[in-house]
């Protein structure tokens, strides 16, 4: 084979490999910190973030705020590590995280809201139905229809937990001291 043709083929193969490596690297939001099923990165929204975080964030969570203003946790699995599936039913239990305002939102694998006839997409600090002691139980997926229920379609989905103006302990992101809601699978067809 002529050396010029060989060079061209090698360059094209290298370029394809480079694009594939980038695609794999930004396939999901970075997860440098894990707390139960919840993951986040300290660099989200920051001008000091690394190129991988910045590229993944652009694709999966554009216009994030810096950590001292808002912390974004993502869950793609339940507490047991199983991928979240909209046909199954999940229960999120907890108390108010240490933040001025919080919300939990369901997104499809394309990072957009999952259309549903009930127009239920999220539960927030200001809208959640609470137990007598102030704690909450949120149902995700399946066909629960309870006040805190959010449908999740019929395939894989993920959750975003937003914590606006997090407290000082929360901003440490230390899983040893930061208490986040639990996420358990209740049933699956």
């Amino acid at each position: 084979m002529h050396w010029a043709v060989k060079t061209l083929l090698i360059v094209v193969a290298g370029a394809i490999l480079g694009v594939l490596v980038t695609a794999a690297a930004v396939r999901q939001l970075p997860a440098s910190i894990t707390n139960g099923p919840w993951t986040t990165s300290v660099a989200i929204g920051s001008p000091q973030s690394d190129p991988y975080t910045r590229a993944a964030e652009a694709l999966h969570g554009l216009f994030a705020l810096k950590r001292d203003e808002t912390i974004y946790f993502t869950a793609t699995t339940d507490d047991a590590g199983n991928s979240l599936d909209g046909r199954c039913s999940y229960e999120i239990r907890g108390e108010d995280p240490d933040a001025r305002w919080w919300s939990i939102t369901v997104y499809g694998t394309d990072d957009f809201l999952i259309p549903n006839p009930e127009h239920r997409y999220s539960v927030a600090k200001t809208t959640v139905a609470r137990n007598a002691n102030g704690s909450f139980d949120i149902r995700i997926g399946g066909s629960d229809r309870s006040p805190n229920w959010i449908p999740a379609g019929s395939g894989r989905f993920s959750l975003t937990l937003r914590l606006y103006n997090p407290g000082a302990v929360m901003t440490t992101l230390d899983p040893q001291v930061v208490a986040l809601p639990t996420l358990k699978r209740v049933s699956c067809p």
Partner: peptide, 26 residues
């Protein structure tokens, strides 16, 4: 040398696309 060239191109394209993705999305 051919393998080295392929990896060099891959590394450059990888860094270039990482740089470009947020700017294109924005």
């Amino acid at each position: 040398p051919w393998i080295a060239l392929a990896f060099l191109v891959a590394a450059l394209v990888h860094m270039g696309t990482l740089y470009l993705v947020p700017r294109i999305v924005m």
